[in-house]
Structure formats: C-alpha cells, structure tokens
C-alpha cells in the first residue's frame, strides 16, 4: 500500500495493467455469458427467468464488495493520510452504486414473474435498497463540499459509519421481515445450486470483479488528472 501511495508510480502501474485487466474482463464475460445463457439449464420451477440470476447475483456481491473497498480505502486514508486512498474511495462509490442499482433493477425484473409484483419488501431487497441510499449519501457528500480536502475528511467518516451500519441494518431488516412473513417465501434457486449452474455464476462473479478493477483504475486515473488540472489552475491563478 505504501508503495502505491505515490500517484506517479500508481499511474505508471495502472497504465501498464489496464489493457491486461480489460482483456481478462472480456474473456471472463465471454465464458461466463456463454455458460449462463447457453450451457446452463433452465430451472424446473422458474424456467428461463432463472438466467437473470447470472447478472443479478454477481451485481449484488459487487455492490457489497465495492462498499467494502470504499470503507477500507477510507480507513487507510484516515490512518495513513494517503491522498490516493481518498481518490480510491471516491471513485469506487459511483461504480458500486451502479452495481447496486443493477442488482435492484434485475431483482425487480426477476420479481415480476416470481412474485407478480415489480417490488416486494423482501429482507434482501430492503437491505440492498438501504445500501443504495448509503452510496447516494456518500456521493452527495463529495458533491456538496467544494474543497477536496475537507470533502475527503468528511467522506471518510461517512463511509466508515455506513460500513459499520451495514451488518446492523442487515440484521434488523432480517428480523423485521421474519416478523411479518415466514422466511420461506423465496429462496434463490433452491438450497443447492447444481454444478452446471454454479460455474457460470462463479465465472460471472470473477468477470464482474475484473470489470470493477478496470473501471476503478480508469476512474482513479481520471480523478488524479482532474486534481492535477485543479492544482495547475490554482497555481496559475496564484501568480496572477
């Protein structure tokens, strides 16, 4: 981590790694989608609809994973004061929010034939919805505070408080939900997932992870460039 803290060195590594990361992403998606759409069987209960799972479940994983990355980066920024960690946290947020939105949207699409409604306040959905709000709040903080250093300090706190909150929210929502309805309403694809369905799911998960890595590196590069531009502008203005 210390090694990466230097933006110049980071940019060098990111520039070198990006083409490879993109290539891996594309290959993984090709394999995963082939498995998901062609080789995997339709579910005996859900029919072809079950294929939404291959888009939906990894998106939900990523939404959680990216928030974890964000919280981790914020913690590093808080402890070691690396400006690059703030950049990492800031740029991860919109990507995570998109994954979160994707999981909500596909869940909703899936829910229509399953429950007969676009939206049901199922425990999982509710938790993901709250996660989406946490993402929005975090991004709003960055947008609301003009001065990047001040924004970074506040955003760290917001990200970490949110992170601590996620399990609590998850627990209370599960409890709230079981209070209202029996827990057996919906179980994803049955208790066990058969091999032909499992491997495309895992490959898709990996593909999403690499997609995130590629997007995140690109976004960080852009953010570093934006900060440089700001610095140059300030410097130019300074000497009138």
């Amino acid at each position: 981590m210390q090694f990466l803290a230097n933006p110049t060195r980071f940019l060098k590594i990111a520039n070198a790694a990006l083409p490879t990361v993109w290539a891996i992403t594309i290959v993984l998606f090709a394999i995963g989608l082939y498995g998901a759409l062609v080789t995997a069987p339709a579910d005996y209960q859900q029919g072809e609809t079950v294929r939404i799972m291959y888009v939906h479940v990894p998106a939900a994983w990523m939404a959680l994973f990216v928030y974890t990355v964000m919280a981790l980066a914020s913690a590093l920024a808080l402890i070691f004061r690396h400006p690059l960690a703030d950049v990492a946290a800031k740029t991860a947020a919109p990507i995570g929010a998109v994954f979160c939105f994707l999981s909500l949207a596909t869940g909703s699409l899936w829910g229509k034939p399953m429950w007969g409604a676009w939206w049901v306040w199922d425990a999982r959905l509710t938790s993901m919805f709250v996660l989406m709000l946490l993402y929005i709040g975090y991004m709003a903080i960055w947008a609301a505070i003009e001065e990047p250093h001040k924004a970074a300090m506040v955003a760290r706190v917001v990200a970490l408080v949110g992170f601590i909150n996620i399990p609590i929210v998850k627990f209370s929502v599960d409890w709230w939900n079981s209070l209202h309805q029996p827990a057996s309403v919906f179980r994803m694809g049955g208790p066990t997932i058969a091999g032909p369905m499992l491997w495309p799911l895992l490959v898709m998960g990996l593909a999403y992870t690499f997609l995130f890595l590629a997007l995140h590196l690109t976004a960080m590069r852009a953010e570093i460039a934006a900060r440089k531009i700001r610095q140059i502008q300030i410097a130019e203005i300074g000497d009138r």
Binding site: R230, Q233, I234, E236, I237, G238
Partner: peptide, 8 residues
C-alpha cells in the same frame, strides 16, 4: 474562464 471558487 477559471471557476471563481479558485480565486484568492
């Protein structure tokens, strides 16, 4: 053309 927020 600079943002006024950057001015001294």
């Amino acid at each position: 053309t600079y943002p006024a927020g950057l001015l001294s």
